[in-house]
């Protein structure tokens, strides 16, 4: 039985790319549900999603979504987001020029002796900061792009990684311009 798209060619058979999309929304109840519902209802991917109020006076929040899809799907995602009533603007940071992407992780490692020393040493190389310590554990705070965090977590695994919490990606365009829709 065919499992591909019902009307002909499966659009997903084209090249899939990851995009970071920034969305400026009214900070009102239900707005996040609208965005998430749009993604789940139409079968789009969410790789990470962060949200927080960024302009208190105007009551605006900024949502950063990392998603993947073909060029046509990415275009659809942006158009679908754009027509939601409480959304002020949608920017595709991946194609609109260079941008800075950062993620924060809290990494809990337990261990004693050599493992503990090695964990501290690697943390130092990655500029991860211990923010909590007991005689047999550390919590490291690390900031960087997704690849850097992945690499650090990989190295911590054999050294006693017990818990991990990540924020997801936040991003901003390089250069002097602000995101449209903020005035």
């Amino acid at each position: 039985m065919a499992t591909t798209s019902i009307y002909g060619e499966n659009p997903l058979s084209e090249d899939v790319h990851t995009h970071t999309i920034s969305v400026l929304v009214d900070n009102e109840p239900g707005v996040l549900a609208r965005v998430i519902g749009l993604f789940s209802g139409r079968g789009y991917n969410i790789e990470s999603l962060t949200v927080a109020e960024t302009r208190h006076r105007q009551g605006l929040s900024r949502i950063t979504i990392v998603t993947s899809g073909t060029a046509m799907i990415i275009e659809q995602i942006k158009a679908q987001l754009g027509r939601l009533v409480p959304i002020h603007s949608v920017s595709d940071l991946t194609i609109e020029g260079p941008c800075v992407e950062r993620e924060l992780a809290l990494v809990k490692v337990d261990g004693v002796g050599d493992k503990r020393v090695e964990a501290l040493r690697i943390a130092d190389i990655f500029r991860a900061r211990p923010v909590d310590a007991t005689t047999e554990s550390f919590v490291f705070e690390i900031v960087g792009d997704t690849e850097k965090l992945d690499a650090f977590v990989e190295l911590m695994k054999p050294l006693g990684l017990v818990d991990l919490s990540r924020t997801g990606v936040v991003a901003i365009a390089r250069g002097p311009e602000g995101m449209s829709g903020q005035d």
């Binding site: 798209s5 009307y7 002909g8 060619e9 659809q76 158009a79 679908q80 754009g82 027509r83």
Partner: peptide, 18 residues
């Protein structure tokens, strides 16, 4: 879809960008 009007140039007027 893959056999839909295969040889045409298409103009689309719509109020909804999506």
């Amino acid at each position: 879809l893959d056999a839909f009007s295969p040889n045409s140039k298409k103009i689309h007027i719509d109020i909804d960008p999506s």
